[in-house]
């Protein structure tokens, strides 16, 4: 089969060129075929995202503009629910509790996890065993953790106060004193720091040893090596856990709900402002008081707060985090 050679820019008379789809640079037919396959493999997730995340989010945005009790049709009320958010003292209280918890929990988890990871990193033969031991609590169901800590934090017979008594400290009323409820919850939250420990341990194991050797040759001591080599090299992991733990803290629900609101008895007996976290208040508004519209507005407010905090963290993270291959 012969082919005619036509000089560039010229067309033979009477010949109409076949219409061709313009080929974008870098998108060869095989690349397009690969892209189609990629979309095919992504399809289950995309469908799931549209059906179970994007769909409900759009519905929730609409419901936040309505008065809706699940049983009757939604009634459009404009921005009333958002106005009510600003005037409901319980929203402010629960948001305050949640933010305070986040401010206590996140740094504490990061510091303790880093300390444990550094210790684990130095352990030789039994590192696998300890890694498993530290991670095991993460496998405990959140509901079980809530019930467990209700017992552990009992003022009179709880193990925590018994332990404190051994060193001469009269333990507080963790579950009934409003000033101690939040610290008790923070204490409980440390139960599952194993996942953060494992992330830090993996990051520590990836730090090249020659950097430490170079630093040592330059006369850097242990603290200087940690500050100038370890921290920058694991800053990516630190940043990741900062973002993830912040988001999880702002959405804290299961353990606290189990402890203080799990059944009618605990709900009534422990019904306290101090244990009312934002998502718990949201849940009560939605499923106990049937204010689905208002609860949807609460959910969107939380979404915006988390989004803003994460954006700020990302902005700051870009300045402080070292990524492999980065020339900074």
């Amino acid at each position: 089969m012969g082919t005619a050679t036509v000089p560039a820019g010229r067309r033979p008379a009477g010949v109409v060129p076949a219409r061709r789809r313009p080929v974008r640079p870098g998108r060869s037919p095989s690349a397009r075929r690969e892209a189609r396959w990629a979309y095919l493999f992504l399809a289950p997730w995309l469908v799931g995202f549209l059906a179970f995340q994007a769909g409900p989010m759009i519905a929730s945005a609409w419901l936040s503009l309505t008065e809706y009790d699940v049983i009757n049709e939604p009634r459009f009320t404009g921005l009333d629910n958002y106005r009510q958010l600003t005037s409901d003292p319980q929203v402010a209280r629960s948001l305050g509790n949640t933010v305070l918890y986040t401010l206590l929990h996140v740094p504490l988890v990061m510091v303790l996890s880093l300390g444990l990871a550094l210790l684990l990193h130095r352990v030789g033969r039994f590192q696998g065993f300890f890694r498993t031991v530290f991670y095991l609590p993460v496998m405990t169901p959140a509901v079980a953790v809530g019930i467990l800590f209700l017992l552990l934090l009992n003022t009179q017979d709880g193990l925590v106060n018994r332990g404190l008594a051994l060193v001469g400290v009269d333990g507080p009323s963790w579950t009934t004193d409003p000033d101690w409820i939040l610290p008790g919850i923070v204490l409980m939250s440390l139960w599952s720091l194993g996942s953060t420990v494992i992330i830090y341990l993996a990051a520590l194991q990836n730090v090249p040893r020659d950097l430490y050797e170079a630093a040592s040759i330059d006369g850097a001591g242990r603290w200087a090596r940690f500050r100038t080599v370890t921290l920058p090299m694991i800053s990516g992991a630190l940043f990741f856990t900062l973002v993830v733990n912040t988001i999880a803290s702002l959405q804290m629900f299961t353990e606290v709900y189990t402890m203080y609101f799990g059944n009618r008895e605990t709900q009534n007996r422990f019904n306290s402002d101090a244990a009312t976290f934002y998502v718990i208040h949201l849940f009560q508004e939605a499923f106990q008081f049937l204010h689905m519209g208002f609860a949807s507005a609460m959910a969107w407010l939380l979404f915006v707060i988390i989004l803003l905090i994460t954006l700020v963290q990302m902005k700051l993270g870009n300045r402080f985090v070292y990524y492999e291959g980065d020339d900074r």
Binding site: N154, D157, D177
Partner: peptide, 11 residues
């Protein structure tokens, strides 16, 4: 007080 009372009753 409530803390001591409630803690005992919870047992």
């Amino acid at each position: 007080g409530w803390g001591r009372f409630s803690a005992f009753r919870d047992t």
